[in-house]
Write a protein that binds this DNA or RNA. Structure first.
Lengths: 112, 112
DNA sequence: ATTCGTTATGTCTGTACAAATATAGCGAAT
DNA sequence: ATTCGCTATATTTGTACAGACATAACGAAT
């Protein structure tokens, strides 16, 4: 069995982290549940942690990634903007390309 | 100013981490100083941490990465094997290729 | 005005991890 | 046999971070 190569990528904006794998997971969960608290629960992370992540995402993005409504019918909720949706799509695409690229490169280790 | 993309890659062998950026740094410092304790000092990490890293590297590599001599003239020392040298060269090469690849991909974010 | 479920925060506590400290063991050279 | 500087570990201490807990604020609907 040979060596495996792994990677983690993230996007920064003005030295703040905008997107990483964890944040993308959270955004997807929010998209599916329509709520930050439910999304956090589905990922088994605390609401507080999820809230901090989402807050950080929105603060470092150039356009709003989510629209958060507080109060009202059902108590409120969180919805992804179109910009938010395209962000996670692009991230996933780049991530997959990166894995593919690295899988080709790792062969270099086998012949050492 | 646009978005920046960052990455971290590492090599695994049987689910153990063989090489990452920190380990490669350490191996380079050992190569320059000829000693684990001096290498650790030059990186401002504790000897214990450095020792643990190096031990892990040698345990997960398929061939020895360093030759550790204990006792004797000068108290001993650590030297990289040829295999060790080629490992860090290959890692650096792949890492640079990956950065270049990702820098091209990040443009996709600017047009969203 | 009251209820409701959510977002939005602060605070307190526990714990995993890192750092510091201590010490044993080694072997060539004198 | 003793010295020396290093590798090789164990043990203790410190700390950043995550998690748990608590609570305020919100606004639509009744």
């Amino acid at each position: 069995m040979g060596y495996k190569i792994k990677s983690r990528i993230w996007i920064e904006s003005d030295d703040n982290v905008l997107l990483g794998e964890g944040r993308v997971h959270l955004l997807k969960a929010i998209h599916e549940t329509g709520s930050l608290s439910k999304g956090a629960k589905s990922l088994n992370i605390s609401y507080k942690k999820a809230w901090g992540l989402l807050d950080s995402v929105n603060k470092s993005a150039k356009e709003p990634v989510t629209i958060n409504s507080v109060g009202g019918k059902g108590g409120g909720g969180v919805q992804l903007t179109d910009y938010g949706k395209s962000l996670i799509e692009t991230f996933d695409e780049i991530n997959k390309n990166c894995w593919k690229f690295l899988d080709e490169q790792v062969a270099k280790f086998e012949t050492l």
